[in-house]
Structures are given as C-alpha cells and as structure tokens.
Design a protein around this nucleic acid. Sequence first.
DNA 1: AGAATTAGTGGGTCATGACCCACTATAGGA
DNA 2: TCCTATAGTGGGTCATGACCCACTAATTCT
Lengths: 159, 159
Amino acid sequence: MASETPIDPPPELPPTLLDLSSYLLSRVGRVARGRLAEQLAERGLRLWDMAVLASLADVGPQAQRDLVRRLGIDPSDLAKVADQLAAAGYVERARDGADRRRVSVSITGAGRALLAELDAQARAVQDEVLAPLDAGERQQLQSLLLRIHRGLGERRSGP
Amino acid sequence: MASETPIDPPPELPPTLLDLSSYLLSRVGRVARGRLAEQLAERGLRLWDMAVLASLADVGPQAQRDLVRRLGIDPSDLAKVADQLAAAGYVERARDGADRRRVSVSITGAGRALLAELDAQARAVQDEVLAPLDAGERQQLQSLLLRIHRGLGERRSGP
DNA sequence: AGAATTAGTGGGTCATGACCCACTATAGGA
DNA sequence: TCCTATAGTGGGTCATGACCCACTAATTCT
C-alpha cells in the first residue's frame, strides 16, 4: 500500500458515542474536573477545599454541619478538610457559644486571598477548555448547565 | 423560635462555584457519567465495554491496537475488556492473516443488539439529566459540547 | 437526673480506574 | 540470520474518593 499514515491520524471517537450528550458531558466534564483538580493539586489542595472556602466566603461563617448539608460532603471528610485548611491558616474554627457542640468555621483573610487566586486559576482553566466558544456561547453553555444542575436530584457524591 | 425548618431547606451551592462553568461541567458531567455507568453496571459492563462496542459497530472490525489508539485505552486494559466481551459472545477475535501479531476484533449480532439496548438506555438517562431543557436547547448543548470536545488536547484518560 | 439526640473526629475500608512491567509471538529490516 | 520493533496479555501497583463505625462532648427532652 501507498503511504500508511506517516505519523498518527486523528483518531476520532465513534459517532455512536459522540451523538450522546450524556457521554460528551461525562467526558468533557471529566477533563474539566481533571484540569481543575490539577491546578489545586499544585498547592496541595483538592476540590473539596475550594468548595469549602467558596461556601464560607459566599454565605459566611458556618458550623460544619451546615457545610455538610450544603456541599453534600461526608462529615468525617469535612473534618479532615477543615483540619487541613485551619492548619494552613485559611480558616478558623471556634466553638459556637450558643451550642458548644458546634464548631463554627470562618474564612480568614489568607483564605479569601487564596480563594481569589483559585477562582482566577479556575477561570483560566475554563478559558482553556471553552476555547472553541465565543463569549456568547459560553454564556449560553453556562446557563444551560446551570439549569441542568438545578434539575438534578442531587444524590450525594463528589464536590 | 417559631418553626425551625421542619424538614430541610434547599441547600444551594455557593455562587462562587456555580458561576464557574468548569465546575458545573465537572459536576454535571460526573452525574451523567455516574448514571450511565450505573446502567451498564446492572449488566456487569463498564463504560469501556460500550466504547469498544460502539467503535466496532461504527468503524468496523479493528485490531486491538486500533481500538487502543482510537479510544485512548490502555492496551492491557483493552485486552481484559475484549476478553470479557468475547466470553459473553458480543465480539469475536481472530488472528489477522496478514499480520499474525494482530488480533482483529469484530462485533457479533448479539453485540450489535446489546449496543442498541445500551444506546437506548443511555438516551433514557440523557432524557433524565437534560430534563430541564427543551429539544432545541438540547441540540444547542450537544453542539457546544461537541465543539468543546473536539478542541480538547485529549491527553489520555477515561472512556 | 437520666435518656435520647446531635456535632464533630479519628481511623479505618472498599471500589474504582489508570497505569506499568515483564513476557510471548510475530514481523521487518540489516 | 540476528536484532529491533510491534501486538497482545497477565498480573500486578497506586492514588483516589466515597463511605462507614465507634467514640466523645454537648444539648435537649421527659
């Protein structure tokens, strides 16, 4: 035969899969997640850390049980995350005066600064992933995703 | 105090996260993946199995090395998947006459039938996940996702 | 006061998925 | 005919993430 692919041909996925939005969603989502996690990992953080910081920054100091409910994280796992964040000075924990069982977690200045950086990085990653889309399309995507997200039954799972 | 949340209030995720398309993508994608995998698991299958079947059905019989390239699966893992599929009668393997190192894999009738069912199930899952969107919006999403997907560097990873 | 409930923690397990190494068989040069 | 490269396989490892149980401390109900 003539020239059998000098280097490598573009190996396309089978249409049967590409036609499945759920498949694309799963695949693209995995990449997004992966790159996001990758960024965080460079600082020794995980997605949960960012989620916790974001929650604290957005809705204010909360007891761990509130974070557990809001984020759907396992209480035991949250304890570990909070521990790490506290050790690094990104959050502070204090016994709740009213109910001394509770530990109220609040974000520190350093925490806010970190979150800002993480957010910036996340947006950079996003620009990378969404590169083929123009601003309007990104907006469209965001809105579609948001609606899908709100529609999900939210059986607990990942960050 | 009056009535302190009889059951549970809707615990919204922090806006900082919800504003991140990459985050939504990761989260929604994970759910899509999870539900898809769930369906397959009921038959003792994984995403890779479906990917392999789809590839065989779409592009015809191939050597394992081609599947490896196309799907980005690890050769060793593919060997196991192919093994399982062959044992169940969904694919057939035959030494390539021209190059006897190669094992040409082809889908059987049973394999096609299975794939059709899987595809149907996948679409059902999809309907569930994309419930909040109308037909036009789904089409829009599909096209956006497809473009994103094509734009990805495709560093190897999952099915 | 005593019992039952809730918040948080520590210390694990378990399933998953990607990846890697060593090895055999075959092919294709030099 | 060696010698190197390629195809496939078997048998693992390793990191990850979700989850669970037992336990303490504090609260609330009766």
